[in-house]
Design a protein around this nucleic acid. Structure first.
Lengths: 196, 196, 196, 196
DNA sequence: ACCGGCGGGACGCCCCGTTAAT
DNA sequence: ATTAACGGGGCGTCCCGCCGGT
């Protein structure tokens, strides 16, 4: 007998995997159910608003998990630039994995931006959380508030974009360039601050 | 009487519009046909491989158009940084338009990355074209080949990523930050080169 | 804490309302549960045979209530014709109400005629009760058994049919015509008897 | 190879049969498709609004067919009362058939009255057509306009109601009583007119 | 005895992208 | 070169058990 609430997390996990690889619209609910080994009735019990609500839960879950991991990385004493470089290296490895996994949130977010406010808002929260994580670390390093926010946002954008380009082109060149560029952004601003 | 080949371009234009707003999988062939005012038979006359081939044509068309426009911008005598800033300003305006239009290619590309090599390759070509346009301008400015390529790729990734984040968050902050960051990347690399 | 058996009557009342407006098959058990503010477990406690048994209970309850009301009307000293006219006037008012309510039994009965003997028999009993009520009054007025039965049946049929036609056409014309016709049937039969 | 437009009429015929026996909501589209031996795609080609539009077409088709038949009956020289008696006898025979067939329109109409204006209006037209057919015959017999309309409406209501009661009770008593009552209504009014 | 949460399959209607015929 | 037909699958919701708690 399955213990209560196995269904819910199984659905989120399976959906996260499939959305990440195939996209939101291209992934059928039935496929998710099959992978999760859960019957349709249960989905509707846990997520009365169906696929959209499930997607929002996936975004929240994956976004939160990534944010926690990111914050743990950023808590280290290493320079931010090195931490971000390490982070991107992780993405490169993921990209080389079987599923050619990219960002777990971006496909869901992009496809739902004009269709599901529920998902859009969850995605916005997730990205904001990541940006805040980086921004707070920069502030701790002594960056002025405004510069910290802007640079954090640019770094997240740079990584997102590079991940997409790399997935499409099939090689890691974009991510490698992003490493160099992120290092430059984080260093150059530092230099500017030091130079003041 | 419609002149020959009205169908083909009407299909591409309509599909481009709809894919950009709704995504690839979420856009039905019937919807495209209706908007284009074209009957199903014509689609399979011009694009025997159906929706995928149409999407590839859209990517090629939109990608080429953007590349031509980008090259015209980059031909100016202004500094690259200013040109890129102007480019991003255009995207900010587009984002504020009715359709909250983002990149015309990225949604198609992301959704097709694991599903349609045809589209994936067309998308890769488009992004490579843009990157080359920027890279060539940097080389003309005297940048060494390797730096030019890397920085161009990073700038395109940065813009792509910022556009996505801005679309999702609903405000232009990410694109604004991208402007600052792009300026920094293009300037700092120049400085590094000059300083050497 | 809800007092025992609130659930049962709440279910019957809610189901009666919804079946009458939407029909039997078109009304979901979940909708009934929601309106009744009762959880699924309770339904299958009170009605082990589920929706069908609930429908039968609704028919029995509503049918009995109407029969009691009808008998009270018919107990008056007024001529039958006038009583029936008053009855139809009530239906006209109900029809003009918010829910455009028709007969509470007929939709359930019609939909179940070939599907649920349980409900079919309950419906037959309800209609037979109404017919008997009218027939008994006619006998009390001195009508011969056979005429009383036939005319009572015809009057009930006439009213049922007129109610349906009025609901569909959206105006009360059919019910108005039924008033005239019912008066004629009850008078003419009387005349025939007197004239004999 | 099926010749064009076989699908459309096959769908209407099959739906008419099934709706009449099982009701509208209780009949699944898939069941109709199976009986008609037609694939789902075709249904939505001929009836873009789906089940509702199909039901409206069924009502229109069956209603029209009955009206034509009814008018042919009423064109005869026999007295109206006899014609109506003959008509009811037909219904009694139908009721005794395998499918316990009742009115082909009433179940659809009743179930859709609060759900589908499309069907409601088609049903109203059908019933109005039948009423007009009887009313016109009465006028031809010399009845005054108002009496003709009212009596025609009452006769149709009486027959509809009796058919329902007979279907539910499982015997033809209600229809038999309706024969007597209809005869009385049509004769008594005639007598009144003659007596004037 | 009564109620609540969760799960289970089946099926609801609709529409998809596509192919053949007229 | 348009209208008809084709299967298959889209998501949602159906009605109903089986528990555990009270």
């Amino acid at each position: 007998m399955p213990r209560p609430d196995r269904s819910r997390s199984a659905l989120i996990d399976s959906a996260a995997l499939l959305f990440r690889r195939q996209g939101y619209a291209a992934t059928g609910v039935n496929q998710i159910l099959e992978v999760a080994d859960v019957k349709a009735g249960s989905l509707y019990h846990h997520f009365p608003n169906g696929k959209q609500e499930l997607a929002a839960a996936v975004v929240e879950s994956a976004g939160g998990e990534i944010e926690r991991l990111l914050r743990r990385f950023l808590d280290s004493d290493s320079p931010v630039g090195e931490i971000v470089n390490g982070w991107i290296d992780l993405l490169i490895v993921q990209l080389a994995s079987d599923g050619r996994d990219g960002c777990p949130i971006e496909p869901i977010a992009t496809e739902s931006v004009n269709a599901s406010p529920l998902v859009r808002e969850a995605s916005a929260r997730a990205f904001a959380g990541w940006t805040d994580a980086v921004g707070q670390r920069l502030r701790r390093d002594g960056w002025p508030e405004r510069d910290a926010r802007q640079t954090a946002l640019a770094v997240i954008a740079l990584i997102e974009g590079a991940l997409i380009l790399s997935r499409i082109s099939g090689d890691a060149a974009a991510l490698q360039s992003a490493k160099v560029a992120a290092g430059s952004l984080l260093r150059s601003a530092l230099a500017a601050r030091d130079g003041s």
